[in-house]
């Protein structure tokens, strides 16, 4: 009985669908159509939108999951997946304690975070060249 009272005294956000997921879903369709027509479309930033947890679940369920799912480990974990609609990508970044730090919907062949940056490729090329030098190659073999 005591537990019930304590629980009741900590009010939580009332669960509900507000219609926001319908609006976002329509916006997704409009932006993908722009991309198909040859234009670019900015991402839809979901983090600051007044979506209830039910709105988010509804949106995620309607977008569904497609063929690609990737996990990125860079300054914490990120998850990226293509929705069931080709060219519509869901990007979710996690922060401290695995909480969602930001999430957005991107449009195009692949979201920007999946691409290797030219600066990183240049650094990788330098590391490979160093690794190919005979002394370093020997050291690598020894280990």
């Amino acid at each position: 009985m005591m537990t019930q009272t304590l629980h009741a005294s900590i009010p939580q956000e009332p669960p509900r669908l507000t219609g926001m997921s319908d609006a976002v879903f329509a916006e997704v369709a409009a932006r993908l159509a722009e991309v198909v027509a040859g234009a670019s479309a900015p991402p839809i930033e979901l983090t600051a939108m007044p979506l209830t947890s039910e709105d988010r679940a509804d949106l995620e369920q309607r977008l569904g999951r497609g063929e690609v799912f990737a996990t990125i480990e860079s300054a914490g974990r990120s998850e990226v997946w293509e929705t069931q609609f080709s060219g519509v990508w869901f990007v979710r970044h996690f922060g401290e304690n695995d909480r969602t730090a930001s999430e957005c919907i991107e449009f195009g062949a692949a979201p920007a975070i999946l691409f290797s940056h030219r600066a990183d490729m240049a650094a990788a090329a330098r590391r490979l060249a160093t690794a190919l030098q005979p002394a370093n190659a020997h050291e690598t073999t020894d280990h």
């Binding site: 990125i72 860079s74 300054a75 990120s78 970044h93 730090a101 957005c104 975070i113 940056h117 990183d120």
Partner: peptide, 10 residues
């Protein structure tokens, strides 16, 4: 640079 992009997105 992915870390920068992620931080910037956040």
């Amino acid at each position: 640079r992915r870390a920068f992009l992620k931080y910037a997105s956040y």
